[in-house]
Amino acid sequence: MSGEFLVELDGVQKTFRLHHFFKVDEDTQRRRLYRKQRVHAAQAVSFAVRPGEIFGLLGPNGAGKTTTVKMISGLVRPDRGEVRVDGLSVERQRKQVLRRLGVVLEGTRTTIWPLTPLENLAYYGNLKNVTGRVLKRRAHELLDFIGLKDKKNVQVRLLSRGQKQKLAICIALIADPKVLLLDEPTTGLDVQSSRAIKDKIIEMTRDLGKSVVVTTHDMHVAQELCDRIGIIDKGRLVACKKTSELLELFSDRTFIFRVDRLPSLDPVRDLPGVMEASNELSADGPMLIVRLDAGMEARSAALYGVVGLLREEGVLLRGIDQRQQNLETVFLQLTSSTI
């Protein structure tokens, strides 16, 4: 890993020990006084985030996403490995690291409800070493940017959930951090608020040049928002690629030929590059479904072949679609679990 990254995790490991008192032993059905359990929240997790990049950490509940974010923000100490932010070690240079980070954690209010957004920003600004005119200017700019300008003097308790979340993002940005960590930023928000938050995150990386690490279990959020995605399951990073590469890697090479009547399947199956072929009748009309070879050249030849056969048979071709692969199916394939 080199200085080109703003966030680096190198072989990070974290195990939590859970203590249960008076737990019933499943084998003997006897009540035991004490039992320890180990939960591996992170197992040799390594990834890096470039400046201006939105990196998504995707995983089911309890996969270790929040623990990973907390290790980057210094709230949780890793058992092994190293976390670096802007080249600084989170363990050894924590205070300097915290100046470079803005964090919004899931399920917490963060904001002080009796205060207005402007007063909240002034309060947290001071906690993060921002003062005077700089603080005032930045607070106004952020509220303007996030769309809370007209609510700046309204008490937070009177704001909607989406507006509170927007304010939490402003608080995280008040010290102008290089890296923003967002833990499930759209959870519990309505479609409009969720869309607004996503748009602002994208705008933020483009306009303000921030790097964003976002955790989510919402596939749509990840697919729309992230430049790169790391899929985490049971504490292990099972994939880490560009969103487009991840979709391509697991892309379904299945093509749907929408026709006016069902063609004969044997000639299609005999074509080089065709792995599987079947006919289907749907509400949309008859369909020939063909699964092709992974290689680009073989795939191209097979597609030409199928079209040629359909023409020879006098079948009217209404359209061709490729079955869309989405992140949800990729995610399920990788984690082999339900969300």
């Binding site: 923000s73 709230l75 917490t108 993060k128």
Partner: peptide, 18 residues
């Protein structure tokens, strides 16, 4: 409970100063 403590923990001044 409210999440303010997490923000204080992430303040560069340190929890004791806060």
């Amino acid at each position: 409970r409210t999440g303010i403590l997490e923000q204080l923990c992430m303040s560069p001044h340190g929890l004791i100063t806060n």
